[in-house]
Write a protein that binds this DNA or RNA. Structure first.
Length: 577
RNA sequence: GUCCCCGUAGCUCAGCUGGAUAGAGCAUCGGAUUCCUAAUCCGAAGGUCACAGGUUCGAAUCCUGUCGGGGACGCCA
């Protein structure tokens, strides 16, 4: 739509003797289609001219616009309502989209900028649980959207692979061989190594509640790990490897990919430098035996070092941010982490700022609401403790199973291999979309029935709409029709669709700027809904071949738009379902 | 107690850089399939935009306060 609003802006600038640069005006839909095809409030212009919006709109309506796609300009109070010449407008719009080709919907707002997106970041030696879905999918979608907006993107998995918990696991490995000897069969050859690790860990933790000396033993093992003891290091590496293998299986199902996988363990050295620098800057304060840094007036100080001298994850985050900036001079760095860690990030960002790092202003906590589980009829934050975890792979399998049943029912003569492929895509589509439909700050209740809904505003609805496009185009292929230039698209519903299409690049920018994939989700729903209304009323393959050719061009633009949008959200566009 | 997020239809949510009559989906009720996939579409019903002030020509949107929900607040991550 910018293409058109810029033309208007330059005309307005010449009419009113204004600088066309920075004259951003917003074209909206009038509240009633009878008023016009496009509308523009004259409030900002009036402010600029110190005049009244009603006068400005009257003045503008009386001008000679001389724009080929513009048919009528009417002032209605402070609004300027525009009627377009549909043939010309449609032709311009379709031409614009077609000439963009593959890059339709991509923008240059992020050109020359680099963004790091940190997301997923699970703990090793544990399964991915359903609550990991949020960070993982939101982060991946953000990374995809940033790429479409022209950014250089580094997608980053900050693994939880360090901490005293690994001391327990290593201690258990050594002393619980009777229960389960992790050396035979070796971890790498086990069917479900992570489950075995978990069982061992839970057992050890429970025993430690009664025998405090087990805690000491765990500390000893963690010390060994820190000091590079070969056995500890070896086993830790094995644990890391089997965990990553398991994660990758799920990541690839979800269309998730990382450019960098670096765990917390990586920052042990850098942390020493951070503490040295804090001390050099006189920022460290002693408080109740621990060392802290004051941040701002109204938030508590950040804890840097414990009484026993050990560091905390916040210290690691400081080190990590600094090393990141040294390696990647980012313009933005996003942490896709749940909102519960808001204070933590305020502290981290605040301390970095106090350390003199100006780039601390470019760190963003892209917070999201927690996923709540239903426990005895109440929605509660899902914690991995207590054993009440819902495994992500179970949810995905369940979704695919259910999708398979629906596909089979709707499509009885489909082959088994096609079916399983489609079921996988539809099941994933349902789960993924349900997570990204609403704005990320909203808490989500984990409701399997809603997650797996296939009707209404869902992933499968979008996929189904894409199937309709594909279906029309394959039917067209049989009749050797060419493609029109779009000038035959004059129906009300066609104008609606064209206006919707023209907003795609703006949606990309808005989604990137606000790090909000739901902007794209909502847009795709509107696009699909507009099309399905059109589809019920008009035939693309009509009796008039010329008209059909124009409409086929529209369908191609719609298909292209929906397909690229879905891919950004990690949902597969389908041609059959 | 302090700080952060949230409060829009029965439910789940759009709309929030102020602008024309607040929109969807689900659920409910009624309707549409000789023709491009009915996982769809059309219609009905459903609203004190939590409440009270303030700013403004104009507030769901901005500010202050109140109430309600969620979360975080030193030796876990």
């Amino acid at each position: 739509m910018r293409h058109f609003s810029r033309q208007l802006a330059s005309k307005i600038a010449s009419f009113l003797d204004l600088d066309p640069e920075g004259l951003e005006l917003d074209l909206v839909d009038p509240p009633d289609a009878k008023l016009g095809d496009l509308a523009m409030g004259c409030f900002p212009l009036a402010k600029l001219l110190r005049s009244s919006p009603v006068k400005v709109s009257q003045d503008l309506a009386s001008r000679d616009w001389d724009i080929d796609w513009l048919e009528e300009v009417v002032a209605t109070g402070p609004y300027l309502n525009l009627k377009v010449n549909r043939e010309v407008f449609s032709q311009h719009a379709i031409g614009l989209i077609e000439s963009s080709g593959e890059s339709w919907g991509c923008t240059d707002s992020g050109n020359g900028k680099t963004v790091i997106v940190e997301y997923s970041s699970p703990n090793i030696a544990k399964h991915l649980a359903v609550h990991h879905l949020r960070s993982t999918m939101l982060g991946q979608a953000m990374a995809n959207i940033f790429r479409s907006a022209g950014y250089e993107v580094v997608s980053w998995n900050h693994l939880g692979d360090w901490g005293t918990g690994f001391g327990k696991l290593l201690a258990a490995w050594e002393s619980y061989k009777d229960f389960d000897d992790l050396d035979s069969p070796p971890l790498s050859e086990r069917e479900d190594a992570v489950t075995d690790l978990n069982a061992l860990y839970v057992r050890y933790s429970n025993d430690a509640k009664e025998n405090p000396e087990l805690e000491d033993l765990a500390r000893e093992w963690f010390k060994k790990l820190e000091n590079g003891d070969p056995l500890a290091r070896d086993r830790w590496t094995m644990i890391r490897d089997v965990s990553l293998q398991l994660f990758d299986k799920i990541y690839s199902r979800l269309g998730v990919h990382f450019d960098t996988v670096i765990g917390e363990s990586h920052y042990e050295e850098a942390m020493k430098g951070v503490i040295a620098k804090l001390s050099e800057l006189n920022l460290l304060e002693e408080s109740e035996g621990a060392e802290v840094v004051q941040v701002e007036e109204d938030i508590p100080p950040m804890l840097i070092r414990k009484k026993d001298g050990a560091t905390l994850y916040g210290t690691r985050d400081l080190a990590s941010a600094i090393t990141r900036y040294e390696n990647v001079k980012f313009d933005r760095c996003l942490y896709v982490v749940d909102a519960g860690q808001g204070l933590h990030f305020r502290q981290v960002f605040g301390v970095l700022k106090k350390m003199g790092y100006e780039w601390a202003d470019h760190l963003e906590h892209a917070e999201f609401g927690v996923m709540r589980l239903n426990v005895d009829g109440h929605w509660k934050k899902g914690k991995t403790r207590g054993g009440q975890v819902v495994l992500l792979q179970d949810v995905l399998d369940k979704a695919v199973e259910l999708a398979g049943a629906v596909v089979r029912k709707k499509n009885p003569d489909i082959s088994e291999s096609d079916l399983s492929e489609i079921a996988e895509a539809v099941g994933m589509g349902a789960v993924i979309f349900s997570d990204m439909k609403a704005s990320r700050r909203k808490d989500v209740n984990f409701d399997l029935d809603k997650m797996l809904a296939f009707d209404g505003e869902t992933g499968p609805y979008l996929q189904y709409t894409h199937v309709r496009f594909a279906s029309i185009l394959s039917k067209a292929a049989e009749s050797k029709l060419a493609r029109g230039d779009g000038s035959g698209l004059v129906e009300d519903e066609e104008l609606v669709l064209i206006k919707r299409l023209l907003r795609y690049p703006e949606v990309t920018d808005k989604a990137a700027k606000s790090a909000e994939p739901s902007q794209l989700s909502q847009y795709l729903l509107e696009l699909a809904s507009d099309f399905n209304t059109y589809y019920a009323k008009h035939r693309v393959m009509s009796d008039d071949p010329q008209l059909s050719e124009h409409r086929l061009t529209l369908i191609e633009s719609l298909k292209n738009t929906l397909a690229t949008g879905l891919k950004r959200l990690c949902i597969q566009p389908l041609t059959r379902m």
